[in-house]
Design a protein around this nucleic acid. Structure first.
Length: 105
DNA sequence: TATATGACGACGA
DNA sequence: ATCGTCGCCATAT
């Protein structure tokens, strides 16, 4: 049985659209559980296939791709028109993803 | 009960 | 820009 936290997280990820890239922290915030980014990673790692979620549209707060799935994720993202460079989402202009520190906003 | 771990994030060096 | 440390917290051992 899924917890409230897990249900909310899954719901938020399910609604991500093509070309929309968000961070774990963004999802935690949208789910109503700010600061619980690790829970987002845990849910994805454990049940991506179960819920059939667009896991590739989730990156960390610095734009880094998912460890161990970088090649596939980069391919999936580029197929949606998202630029990926050296294991990173290239710019801060996709979806709600925003880097924490931008030297040149 | 106690530690270790991790698809994270903020910060400082 | 990159790396290490620390806070966080559910699971695993």
């Amino acid at each position: 049985m899924a917890s409230e936290l897990e249900r909310r997280i899954v719901e938020v990820i399910r609604f991500l659209r093509e070309g929309e890239v968000v961070s774990y922290g963004d999802i935690a915030n949208d789910a109503g559980f700010p600061g619980r980014s690790r829970a987002v990673g845990r849910v994805l790692a454990a049940s991506t296939d179960v819920y059939d979620l667009p896991w590739w549209r989730v990156v960390n707060s610095t734009g880094r791709l998912v460890p161990g799935h970088e090649a596939e994720q980069a391919q999936l993202l580029r197929a949606e028109g998202v630029s990926v460079d050296n294991g990173r989402v290239k710019a801060a202009m996709y979806g709600r993803f925003r880097p924490v520190r931008r030297s040149n906003p």
